[in-house]
Design a protein around this nucleic acid. Sequence first.
RNA 1: GGAGGGAUCGCAUAGUGGUCUAGUGCGGCCGCCUGCUAAGCGGUUACCCUGAGUGAUCGGGGUCGAGGGUUCGAAUCCCUCUCCCUCCGCCA
Length: 419
Amino acid sequence: MLDIKFIRENPDTVREALRNRQSNDSIDDVLALDEQRRALLVDVESMKARRNEVSKEIGRTGEKPPALIEEMRRIGDHIKAIDEQVSSIEGEINDLLLRIPNIPHESVPVGTGEEDNKIERYWGEPGEFDFTPRPHWELGEALDIIDFERGAKLSGTRFYVLKGKGAHLQRALISFMLDLHIREHGYTEVYPPFMVKEECLVASGNLPKFADNLYRDVEDDFWFVPTAEVPLTNLHRDEILPPGSLPIYYAAHTACFRREKMSAGKDTRGIKRGHQFDKVELYKFTSPETSYDELEKLVDNAEEVCRRLNLTYRVLSLCTGDIGFASAKSYDIEMWASGCKEWLEVSSCSNCADFQARRANIRYRPEQGAKPQFVHTLNGSGLALPRVMIAIMENYQQADGSIVVPEALRPYTGFDVIE
RNA sequence: GGAGGGAUCGCAUAGUGGUCUAGUGCGGCCGCCUGCUAAGCGGUUACCCUGAGUGAUCGGGGUCGAGGGUUCGAAUCCCUCUCCCUCCGCCA
């Protein structure tokens, strides 16, 4: 969330940021409430000061003049009443702040939607085929490595079963990606819970606004993670990291669970958008000074996966109208898929600056004795499994319907071709 | 799921209604002393909100797991919750 002090002091900057995001949010209410709150505080705190003074005096002397006790009783009632007002106003302020999106970084292109995203670079060429390349759902069924029918039997629409070499290929990809990031890019592997408490999703920015894309267990207040970003953000919640601890790099493989209600009917074919999918996530805690450099490195770490797999991709810088709620700046990586002939989003890499850190109360001490500051948090997929599976299947397919396994994965699969 | 015990300043502990402005030890930091180191001595040691000031700063409020309650006054008494530990049950 945004700092109320920053909003108070820079209302026009915030309003412009909201406009650029195509957001209807207003900061007028929050500013008015903030002013009310501070006025009440001045009032109630002077009463508390008086009460403390008298209590101390009674303690010291042991005398209890009835008139004074009577005054204190009245002051006590006033304090209680105003405290209740303050906490109710603080609740309102907080509710409002939690729904205001992050301010885009100055380097983010201004635009209204997807069409204004800026293409930063391309890598590789769309493959040439001397036959008509088939979409992955046809290949997957023919090779008996994806079972859509039984997936639906078990769990309904948007579920599938990976089988045989299909399941093995995904597992190989996961190990390959994790090993790359851990051995060569300096990340620490993390295996987090897949179910977390509500407060974790507030900290990450998924709640209160995006509850309709989340699965939950009401009885025990467990929410299924929509991405490993959620538990990773919360790893250091309510901590002050000691000097010298930044940057911290984490990589985690988890399943991700999403309702995808908003996009009902969209992308129902194949494995592009399921309710459950696996992802290797990259996450960084950094100082504010380095976070934008760290974002570039993070994107490059994710791109390296594409390059090692020899899969054609492009990188987009998302415009103000398209970046996520918590993000100050985001790059998407899209892989070309020859069968369905589209660019598939396999990674979204974001610098959330101090937006999540403020919600999660994650700070660091720049040096011994210095004041704590909010860290910057960054996240990016490295990468999302199903769409990489699609790209491999469709781009590495042969005329006979078999699929060649990318060189880099063979140590992990033990087979060179799926046929 | 049942029974019991616990949560205090970075760590360890003291504190059972007012002199707690939370003590002490360890660790950390600064200084002194001493050829060096160690020891010793002295000082220091959290976070949030808010008011005044251009500012270094100064004042006020709050925080003893969280939230409520009793009281003029709560680390301390009462209630609810969370987490940890021990035992029993169940279980991969």
